[in-house]
Design a protein around this nucleic acid. Structure first.
Lengths: 217, 217
DNA sequence: CGACATCAAATTGTATACAAATTTATTGAC
DNA sequence: GTCAATAAATTTGTATACAATTTGATGTCG
């Protein structure tokens, strides 16, 4: 995958930000971080620019890079947008999905069930992710698929927490079945509504989640 | 705005790609472009990374940058997504817009009318852009607003052509009034539908437009 | 003749050196 | 003591030099 120094640094910085070791608003000193990751400033700057594009860092000309860790407010906003995009994917997929793609999605859902049966939440998370990605592709809109994928990646760390909530995993699975049913039936409206709700619930319940976990890790 | 060499180069490359001087799929040689823009490879690479983030070039590790100019297919897909996002903005704005923001939007629409009355399509384009941006902000979802703005910028060159189509400008203005009415009335459904249609028509009519203009400039 | 290994040229990735800008410290006046 | 102006120091932006990877050619063997 990413054997370039810049990519390794990017992933490392991502971790440092998401774990809170680099607090929101913190100034990112290039030389300090470069020595920390044992690389020169060149790949480090490249990593900062990539993070700026993905929104985790704000880049101010001639002043440097600052951590921009979304608060609850922005996180809810992102889930709201994600719900809309995924709903759109469902709507389009219900109309356009091919027989073979539907079979693939069905298979992905089945693999989610397996993970659920085994109570393996990490594995469920990965297969759930795959399930959604297949839906993006099934929309038949390549640009939409890419945008949805981008947002999914961006929300990844927060989404992951969700499954730890009591009873969320079985509920998620039930929603998957409903989504799959709607698409198989070609019911665009139902598919859109089901997917939108499936995603939106994560944003809406986020406050509860945070309260039950204490301060963000 | 962008006094940094990297920004200047980015804008320059953007132009070269959109005008077709750098054809789709073309390999972008770093040293050649650097000498052309009379800068070193460092800011040039920075520009390439920025363009990669915005989607105009594809960056393949250890192989270089390649022009990725969207064909009609992808352009229609982008308009489809834009229509969804703007529709969402309208839906939310109808519910959440403040009195002062509504007044601002009203003012922007009025300035569009002025430009229309004077038949100044360039000015209309700019004021129309502003009108839409105010709608994004009025959604009350800052993340959505940023995403919509990003896509708007990305579609800018293609959108600009639209207004040259016969009769498009007055029709656009009429749609603005309908949108504004719906939001003022707090009718979320109508606002969403109006905005979605307003944007979607541009994507749908794109084939006609291209046919009437000949090959992409 | 074609497949494959090997080496040279070209191109990308990274490190370091230098220039420009910003921030901080210092000095002097009021 | 506060503020303004200025100079030193820190930090970002750019240029150049070097390393590593890829590409294409050449030659050898089957």
């Amino acid at each position: 995958m990413g054997r370039r120094a810049a990519d390794i640094v990017r992933e490392g910085l991502e971790q440092l930000i998401l774990t809170g070791e680099l607090a929101d608003g913190a100034h990112l000193d290039e030389v300090r971080l470069a020595t920390r990751f044992d690389v020169s400033r060149t790949p480090l700057r490249e990593a900062l620019q990539a993070l700026s594009a993905s929104g985790l860092v704000e880049l101010i000309p001639n002043r440097g890079a600052f951590v921009r860790n979304p608060g609850i407010q922005e996180m809810v906003e992102m889930f709201e947008v994600m719900a809309e995009l995924e709903g759109m994917c469902g709507r389009l997929a219900a109309r356009r999905v091919s027989e073979t793609a539907l079979a693939e999605i069905d298979g992905a859902a089945a693999r989610c069930e397996d993970a659920l049966a085994q109570g393996d939440s990490d594995e469920y998370y990965r297969r759930n992710e795959r399930f959604h990605q297949l839906l993006y592709a099934a929309s038949g809109n390549g640009f939409l698929a890419k945008e949805a994928l981008r947002l999914q990646k961006r929300l990844q760390p927060y989404r992951r927490m969700q499954l730890r909530v009591r009873g969320r995993m079985p509920q998620s699975m039930a929603e998957h079945r409903e989504i799959l049913d709607a698409i198989r039936a070609g019911d665009a409206t139902r598919a859109e509504r089901a997917l939108r709700a499936h995603v939106a619930v994560q944003g809406e319940k986020f406050n509860d989640l945070l309260a039950s976990l204490g301060p963000v890790a």
